[in-house]
Structure formats: C-alpha cells, structure tokens
C-alpha cells in the first residue's frame, strides 16, 4: 500500500514539476530571443486544452500505441529515485529503466506508423536512428560508473556519491563521462541541435504529424514524463541525487542549461548527427572507461 502511495506521489510530483519547468523553459527561450514569452503555467493550459478537443482515430494500432507510450513511460518513471522518494528500493536497476523506456518509444513509433502518414514514417526512422547514435556513447559512459561502483542500482550509485561533499559526485570523478552524458542527454530530450526527428518546418513535426486533440495531449504528457526520466537519470548518475530539494535544484539547473544551449544553436542533419555521436562522445566515453578500468581512478 505504501509503495502504491509513493508511486502515485512520484507521478504527481513529476507531472507538476516537469510541466512547470516546461513553461519556464519556454520563458527562458523567449528571454534569450528578447521576447516576453508565455507565462509559466502556459503548458498546463495547453495540455488541458488538447484534452478538451475532439480527436479522430486511424485504427486500433494508432490508439493502442498512444496508450502503450504513456503507460510505458509512467511505468519507467516509477523506477527513478527522486531524492529520498524511492519506490522500488534495490530494484531500480539501470538496465530495467533502459528496457522500460524503450516500451514508451516503441509505442509511439508503432502508433505513428499506424497513422499511415509518410512524414510520420520519416520521423520515426530518424528518431530510431538518433536513439542508436546517442545510446552507445551513453551506455559506455554509464558502464564506467557501474564498473567503479560494482552495482547497477541507480539509488545505490546516487548514495555512493554522497558523503564526500561535492567532489564525490561522478561529475568530478569522471569529467569526460559527464560531458558524454550531457551530450547524450540533449539527444534524448530532442533538444535543438538534435531535434531532427520532430523538425516542424521540415517534416511537419515528424511522428506527431497525424495527432490532434486528445491523442496529442497524451503524447505531450508522455514527452514530459520521458523528460523527467531522462533528466532524473542524469542527475542521479552524475550529480549524486541528494535529498528531494537538492534533486529538484540539480534537475532545474541541468534542464535549463540544456534549454539555453538549445535556444542558440541550429539543427543537425540526421547523418551529421550520427557521425558526430560516433566520433566525439564515443571517443571520450572510450577514454573515460579505459581510465576507470585500467587505473582505477574515479
């Protein structure tokens, strides 16, 4: 029972926190563009509005995929330790999270292809290519952490970084690893240099092209939850989690930093992106892992 309550609390926390942050992120982008920008609660209004509209179906796969994406992402979210809110202690394994997160992405891909729109197929193909690109350097950097800590439990890794003050964080113990992690995080979030899958002016927002009304609202919510999973994972792995307040502050800094970078850069083409990920971050991740394995530093 208490597990159930904690899980509900975590989902509610993620809902309010991440959607507020999305609004703030729009504001930050606007300020960088020297605009006034929308109010911070704009994303709540957008979400509720999409739920109040009508929507159409393109068949069973189309509807089912949306539910699978949202459900899969919420299931992943429950495994993320947020400060001392840990729902499944000792079960929050890194590999469980990686596998479950794929359920969300695959649900979305399935549903988008089910809509039968060619832009959606192009977008899904790009999204999967991008996943292949960022995941290999990221996994490599995380392997270094798992090797150094001899555990893959996210909560255990976060706890191991506390105690020595700020220098105990993996960010300082593995400086190359955190660079790789951050570049991969930008790719996971689909932030600006890596937003080829949803390029609105080029392929009409890619996988989202056929969604309107309630379906679009659910996928927007899925995106917010997935963002919470990805940023939360980064904070736990590299910045040492901490109490709930510390977790949220770190989360805020990481997310806003990614937004600031995203608002001043242009978009990579999908082939440039793959070449980039397989060159710089992969090389850095190799060096980091080699240092950890052969010298024991970190």
């Amino acid at each position: 029972m208490s597990t159930f309550l904690t899980a509900t609390g975590l989902v509610l926390l993620a809902f309010f926190w991440q959607i507020t942050l999305s609004g703030i992120q729009r504001k930050v982008t606007a300020r960088i563009h020297r605009r006034v920008g929308s109010p911070w609660y704009q994303n709540f209004i957008d979400l509720f509005k999409t739920w109040s509209k009508s929507s159409i179906s393109h068949g069973f796969i189309y509807d089912f995929g949306v539910l699978m994406a949202l459900g899969g992402t919420i299931a992943t979210l429950i495994f993320i330790p947020a400060g001392h809110i840990v729902v499944f202690d000792k079960l929050d394994n890194f590999f469980v999270i990686t596998y479950l997160l794929a359920v969300g992405s695959l649900g979305m891909a399935m549903s988008a292809v089910g809509s039968g729109n060619p832009w959606a197929s192009i977008g899904v193909m790009r999204a999967l290519t991008q996943m292949l690109a960022y995941e290999i350097p990221y996994i490599m950097a995380v392997f270094a952490i798992i090797y150094a800590n001899k555990t893959a439990s996210i909560h255990a890794i976060a706890l191991a970084q506390q105690g020595m003050g700020i220098l105990g964080w993996n960010m300082f113990r593995m400086p190359l690893g955190v660079i790789v992690g951050f570049i991969s995080l930008m790719g996971m979030l689909g932030k600006k240099p890596y937003d080829a899958p949803i390029a609105p002016a080029e392929i009409a927002s890619g996988p989202l092209v056929e969604y309107g009304g309630k379906h679009l609202g659910m996928l927007m919510l899925q995106h917010e939850f997935a963002t919470f999973v990805e940023v939360g994972l980064f904070v736990n792995l590299f910045l040492g989690g901490g109490t709930l307040l510390a977790f949220l502050i770190k989360y805020f800094i990481v997310y806003i930093l990614a937004t600031m970078i995203a608002s001043v850069v242009a978009r990579f083409k999908i082939d440039q992106l793959v070449v980039f990920y397989y060159k710089v971050p992969l090389a850095l991740a190799f060096i980091q892992t080699a240092i950890v394995i052969f010298t024991g530093l970190g």
Partner: peptide, 22 residues
Amino acid sequence: MTSRFDMERIGMAPMATPRQAD
C-alpha cells in the same frame, strides 16, 4: 510572431499540421 510583437505571450504558437491546430 517574433520579438517585436511576440504573440507567444498571449499563448499563441505556430503549429506544423492541421490536426494539431486550433
């Protein structure tokens, strides 16, 4: 849409496809 008059401040945003638009 851009910095001079900035329609985002009243909650308007451009969308890519008819399905998403109001």
